[in-house]
Design a protein around this nucleic acid. Structure first.
Lengths: 342, 342
DNA sequence: TTTTGGCACTCTAGACCATAGAGTGCTAAA
DNA sequence: TTTAGCACTCTATGGTCTAGAGTGCCAAAA
């Protein structure tokens, strides 16, 4: 793959990304590589097709990057496309407005990312399991319903209803809350050893029914990434893309984007840094014609959430990557600052 | 409008709703009114068209109900289509599983409604402003960030970040929380008179910075229906409808369904009972080809939230109305029970 | 050896046309 | 009042043709 081929592949990719029309040798010669004739470019393009970087929708159409072509473009050819001042300002303003309210912030982040990338955006916000415990509170809702609230250092907040056979007064609940806070404040959920739990339970023996339920929630599956931490936006942007003119193509993707549980699986579990999955690199059949750019965020080496965009494979990778990276770093920073400030 | 015309209008409507094809006199004669010949039916249909109940997409097509036709059908002709045992079971099971967690419940309700009605579903869940105050809690997040949490009788929970210049210990915060609870527990937000607020402020004079911010939030716009209480589901169902085959028709509706703030405006502020808005009865241009069935829920004469479906005007009104009514009543009951149990 | 102009070839999109089928409205007869 | 019959209208479908875009290949030019 010589320099000229690279230039041609780059030109084809960038032109196709912006016009959504297969690009022919003539276009390349006129718009990008004026020093070469169409014929020369045709020869090179034939090679590029033979090598699998380009494809032809049909004989007399121009060329289109293949998945391999996009992959090469992303890995080698793409130039950085930094955010404009305006875009950065918009993001940062939104971030500072919702500092400390991670749910609202994630929602806003999805919205703004969808808008700037003109794609669908997905944000998985950090659940309580990511931070350390800041406060636990029991509140009486009715005679036998208690609401337990857990707040963590990341500003995440989880509430669970506990139903009791024997009702407790708010005074009792305050006592329980105080004891729980005395033992558990400042700890992360990984720190909740069996020993510790046993000790707390012992001290709360007067309220054993409540205590056992509460501690069960804190240690078990009660505290785990939930569907409520999945935020999606920009679904309508999807339908703007010409590749989804025929609605049948869009439907399976939209079904996926509506399914919080699938998105949770799809987007979590990545290490920090940008992940780009192009077309069938996504194992899901529905995403055969889509690409996903995602980045995890967090701090102290801990992945706490994910932010990403979903769009057609014909996507402005450079822009999307810059955006996702910038926005992920912004959230990481907020989380980090929150954890130093305590 | 004689009986026979009504029968014909009903037949046309129900056939069109289920097939999405304009229906001709022959079909009516064969499938619905076998004792009449197509010619007779043609005459009646011509009348119905003249009177504005039916429309013809073009000369040699069958007839389709006009908005006026749908309206007449809904008001007069429609027969009740009760839910199946299975459907009721599904709804009630979901409800009982999330009893007391109004956000999760609303989310689940939207999902199940969308599924059963095969339309888009929207649920506005009751914000804290609807219930009476159950508990107020301040929790220290960092040196100068306090999180204030308000829980109400409906199980709604609101949290707001308060930033202070002078940091307070969790002990201080517990004191403040206790005082706030002593004064405000059991009251609704309408009960927060200026007098009362002044009294509370006086007692909290030692913490005036925090107190004034907290009380400001409680009394002002801080506590109002927020975008986080809007839950949408079933957007993908929309695209199944043949009227949205051409994506341009669907796009504006999807944009609307993605805009929490617009939905909030659109769906709130109705009295209890079912509201049916057909086509251009919706003032919004985007909904020209859609119908909305919605019902408010709540108890003690107070509207607390709304649940509804959005679909094409060619909608199974009877089914949708039964579903929405049943689901709204279910939520109302849960809220009512919660308020007696206290 | 590389580049380029020229040319024949291929394929699609769009225009145009013809036809089948569905449905109507009208008229006259039952 | 109802109905059979018939002429008429309109759409959807499929076929055919053409213009246009783009290619591949060859032979000449650099």
């Amino acid at each position: 793959m010589n320099t000229r081929k690279k230039e041609i592949l780059q030109a084809v990719t960038e032109d196709y990304v912006s016009t959504a029309e297969p690009v022919g040798s003539r276009t390349i010669s006129r718009k990008y590589l004026t020093e070469l004739s169409p014929a020369t470019i045709r020869n090179e393009m034939a090679d590029l097709e033979y090598e699998g970087y380009l494809e032809q929708p049909h004989t007399s159409a121009g060329r289109v990057p293949s998945e391999k072509g996009y992959r090469f473009y992303v890995d080698t050819l793409m130039r950085d496309k930094p955010l404009t001042q305006e875009e950065m300002g918009k993001v940062l303003q939104e971030y500072s407005k919702r500092r400390g309210e991670i749910q609202a912030l994630s929602r806003a982040a999805a919205k703004i990312l969808a808008e700037l990338a003109n794609c669908a955006a997905v944000v998985i916000s950090p659940g309580v399991q990511c931070g350390s415990i800041k406060h636990i509170q029991m509140a009486a809702i009715s005679n036998d319903d208690i609401m337990m609230i857990v707040i963590t250092s990341t500003g995440a907040l989880e509430h669970r209803l506990i139903r009791l056979r024997n009702s407790l007064s708010q005074n009792d609940l305050d006592v329980v809350s105080a004891i729980l806070n005395r033992h558990l404040r400042g700890l992360s959920f990984a720190d909740l050893t069996r020993q510790l739990i046993r000790a707390v339970k012992a001290e709360l023996s007067a309220y054993s029914e409540l205590a056992s339920q509460a501690l069960e929630i804190l240690t078990s599956s009660g505290i785990c990434p939930s569907e409520e931490s999945v935020h999606t936006d920009g679904i309508a942007n999807f339908l703007e893309q010409p590749e989804f003119k025929q609605i049948e193509r869009a439907r399976p993707v939209l079904r996926l984007l509506e399914s919080q549980s699938h998105l949770l699986n799809l987007m979590s579990g990545y290490r920090t840094g940008i992940t780009v999955r192009i077309g069938s690199e996504n194992t899901l059949e529905e995403l055969r014609d889509c690409s996903i750019i995602s980045a995890s965020y967090g701090h102290a080496g801990k992945v706490m959430g994910t932010i990403g965009v979903v769009g057609p494979t014909r996507m402005d990778y450079s822009k999307a990557i810059s955006l996702v990276r910038f926005m992920a770093e912004g959230i990481s920073e907020l989380l980090e600052r929150a954890s130093f400030e305590r």
